[in-house]
């Protein structure tokens, strides 16, 4: 289980989020095989939760056992057309992640990524294939940015954001929902935030392994002057943290415009946006280590 958007432990949204997570996880298992369940992220779960709230499609709760929970039954959100559409998006994003892994990693990790990538081709439905075609140029552009080691963090993060926006727009259209521009802009900023969170979290690893990270290349003088990696990470975080705080603020601006249109789950989503996301941002920036305990350890 990975991803950045997790509810805080003390809130009711914890239960709802878990039910959505388990519902998606089970659905992936039935659709794409048990192995696919390892790749479900919290971020995709959150996207499904938001689209469910916008669609107001009726659904049912179910109580079921699963591989990870043998003894007690877990409450799950019974899959609807939202989960079907989101799972197609998931396959496209997974393809990108695997390609990234094949390029970045070496040895056994790269070998497994290649195997899963080839196997993953069998999972794709028509909708996923269409989506991938539409996004082909964007993914290629993203890879080019990474190959050229473009120093501006906005180039790569904005592009990843626009990919998220396209994916969300396609899901809304497939579900025949009103394409809400504010929600689309929000999803674009969410993608930007996820990309930057990843860049901040991987700073030390990327310096060590010399992988592309725009935060490193936009502060290259620090690398040229300083030898201690820990000091470099600290300095880059200090210089660049404004960017992450600004994107959270930017996201909230658009969220405030459409949150009244959310049907069910609005209280829970509100808690995630206004409290969990800032806590996770601070956690990644290393400002609030104490908040670690609050983040849900789902599973």
């Amino acid at each position: 289980m990975f991803g950045y958007i997790r509810p805080l432990r003390r809130y009711s949204e914890n239960y709802l989020f878990r039910a959505q997570y388990c519902g998606l996880c089970k659905y992936f298992g039935t659709q794409y095989g048990q192995f696919s369940r390892f790749f479900l992220s919290y971020d995709i779960t959150f996207l499904a939760l938001m689209i469910s709230a916008l669609s107001e499609e009726p659904f049912e709760w179910q109580y079921e056992h699963c591989v990870a929970h043998w003894f007690s039954k877990r409450r799950i959100k019974h899959p609807t057309s939202v989960e079907e559409a989101v799972s197609d998006v998931f396959v496209v994003l997974l393809g990108y992640k695997l390609r990234d892994e094949i390029i970045d990693s070496e040895g056994i990790r790269s070998f497994f990524a290649k195997r899963i990538h080839n196997y993953q081709l069998k999972w794709k439905g028509d909708f996923s294939k269409e989506l991938e075609k539409k996004l082909k140029s964007s993914f290629e552009e993203l890879m080019e940015i990474e190959m050229n080691k473009t120093p501006d963090p906005d180039s790569a993060s904005n592009l990843f954001g626009s990919i998220m926006k396209t994916l969300t727009g396609e899901v809304l259209m497939r579900l025949e929902l009103v394409v809400d521009e504010d929600f689309l802009k929000f999803s674009e900023l969410l993608g930007k935030w996820i990309y930057l969170m990843d860049a901040f979290e991987d700073l030390e690893k990327d310096i060590k392994k010399w992988h592309y990270n725009p935060l490193i290349f936009s502060n290259k003088e620090l690398l040229l002057e300083e030898d201690d990696n820990a000091v470099i990470v600290k300095q880059i975080t200090e210089l660049e943290k404004w960017r992450l705080h600004l994107v959270v603020d930017h996201m909230r601006e658009y969220y405030d415009r459409f949150f009244k249109r959310l049907g069910h789950f609005s209280i829970e989503i509100n808690g995630i946006i206004h409290e969990a996301i800032p806590v996770m941002t601070d956690k990644v920036l290393g400002n609030s280590c104490k908040s670690d305990g609050n983040a849900e350890k789902d599973g």
Partner: peptide
Amino acid sequence: QTMGGTFFS
């Protein structure tokens, strides 16, 4: 406000 992350709010 840009540097403090409060520009939009």
